[in-house]
Design a protein around this nucleic acid. Structure first.
Lengths: 196, 196, 196, 196
DNA sequence: TATGAATGAGAATTCATTCAT
DNA sequence: GATGAATGAATTCTCATTCAT
């Protein structure tokens, strides 16, 4: 299939660039992640390469976001598959995010960096859904079923998301951090907190 | 005494600059807070003014940090004065930070922006103490007294600090947010979470 | 005949590209008329399409010129056919150019844009002939016949041509401009001016 | 006076830059007049110099416009001073513009280049006033006084302005052109044309 | 204590064009 | 007859900082 093959190279290049961008953003922060540093990391010849494959910087960043979020949701979906208990679902959600941080440290770091460093409202929508969207819906459902107490789901979802952001920050600073234990602690913390 | 008068002018200038820097960092983010934008905001003649009063950018940022943290700790100290109960102390701590966010929105926003946007390890120490230092000591003491359950104080302190960061972000995005209620929700959340 | 069929497609493509180029040059000006914007306008896949069909940019611009000038002279020829009176011929010439501006606004605009924006002496020859060539010959002949006064035909021809350029500029700025009236005014103006 | 002296250097620099910009725009056209070529022409160290003294490119272009137009109006004012006859005033106007083209060839060329090459509506206002503003008012007044015939003053003013633009173009292409004669021809042409 | 002037380095982006198939 | 991929050069503009007074 010619069409697919034509696109294959293009897709491979885009992936090479987004992967490099993820690493650079994770390592240097959103502010320092210039085209020059990304091409250097990707082993490309010039920044022109990026401009050729992406309309502009926000196009690249959006591609990074989509890619990283897809990977994160994959981990999440796999972890919560089959879990029905609401409390266990919350635990699974938190632990899945920390597991994602463990298996894809650069990906999650990049998302957090973009979330905090970038100011384009363009990213806010997709970031919001990744950070608090699903979680808040779960919390809301748990309240309706009576398994959770009465609290502001927006506040709690934001608190959980922020705690996971904080975990990413700490993990970056302390590479030896035991993330599995960290995830369990966070899950314990919030499952206690949502009890009726 | 000439020396003192010189210092007084000097201090006034420094304050004018740090105040402007706080506003700009809070409004535009650390990455966009250039000298040019700060002098514009402060109504100064040129960026040379900043370079004259501060050794370099990190010197200015550190001054911003010290100033903002002092103001925040002042609010905190006033709020926890006389509180002895450990749980109430935790509640007071969280609510005091949110109150600080309400009374000094630009200050706390600036601190968070520097915490997430800047990468100089230089700031990390002072930031760490502001965000988790006192809190973690309180939690630890509470555990020793048996009022709190057994959890990793570092994890919980980081979670609380991150939740407050998240509150600052939301407050920036939603100016009409009821911060007093938000603070109460957060305090409820974490006081439930630390129960034995 | 394969050769002809190939040429037909080739010609169709070239026409598609020159037509798009005319629109872009007319709308955005010569300076902003990049290959990228032309392919976008033409709905082509890449700028490579242009480079394939035209040797280089000046080749494309020359094709635009030839095409637009041919269309303009067609209108002119139709309008002056049968007119013998010298003064009427001048009037017909001016009005035909304005009519061309009305029926092919993008074409004439593109010619003017290239005339003013481009610097290649290559275009100057063909432009010169379109703008002042025929007109100057008519004026000269009119003088020999004694119907026109004594003036510098080069100056007057250039003035007429410039006035028509100006009309194109105004028409672009004011889409509601009554061009027929404008043409009549110009014709009146210059027929008065050439009287002996 | 310190204030003046401080500004003096600044003003001198700005003049040095605008003068160089006028030359470059006149010689290479608006499209090719990059900062790089202007600093090269001005003998400055880097384009940074321009960015330091002008907010952005349009700021520089506007300064060029103001400077060139002021010089042109100075010549015009000197030429029409004391002229009362309406027809003579029209002649003086046209000849003054051509004289300006002769004494300040680069200045008028630059104005024409900006007028045709730039697209910023920002310039349009000041350009319009220079090109047709005063002239149209004169024509209108002449009609009210009955010295001129009935014609559309906007059309005629635009035609005169365009003819002067055309003169600038020709003068650039033919350095040996006798501009005084050219100006007289144009003045003859249009004074004939406006007769009742 | 203050400032006007200047700067080298780097930013993202656009340009017409060429290579290889 | 067509195209996907790539590119070097150039664009305007911003950055924190230094020089000289």
């Amino acid at each position: 299939m010619q069409v697919n093959e034509q696109t294959a190279t293009e897709l491979a290049r885009r992936k090479q660039i987004t992967d490099a961008a993820i690493e650079v953003i994770a390592d240097l922060g959103y502010g320092k992640a210039s085209f020059a540093r990304i091409v250097e990391h990707a082993g490309l010849s010039s920044t022109r390469m990026i401009s050729y494959h992406f309309a502009d910087k926000s196009d690249l960043v959006m591609a990074v976001l989509v890619s990283a979020i897809a990977a994160g949701d994959e981990v999440l979906d796999a972890r919560i598959a089959g879990v029905v208990d609401r409390v266990e679902l919350l635990r699974a959600h938190i632990e899945a995010r920390v597991e994602y941080l463990r298996t894809h440290p650069k990906h999650l770091r990049a998302v957090v960096e973009i979330g905090t460093g970038a100011r384009e409202p363009m990213y806010a929508v997709v970031l919001r859904d990744f950070r608090v969207g699903r979680l808040q819906r779960q919390l809301h459902q748990g309240q309706r079923e009576g398994v959770f107490g009465q609290f502001d789901t927006a506040v709690v979802a934001e608190a959980v998301a922020s705690a996971l952001d904080g975990a990413a920050q700490r993990a970056a600073a302390e590479p030896d951090l035991d993330l599995t234990a960290y995830g369990r602690e966070l899950a314990d913390l919030f499952t206690r907190a949502v009890r009726p």
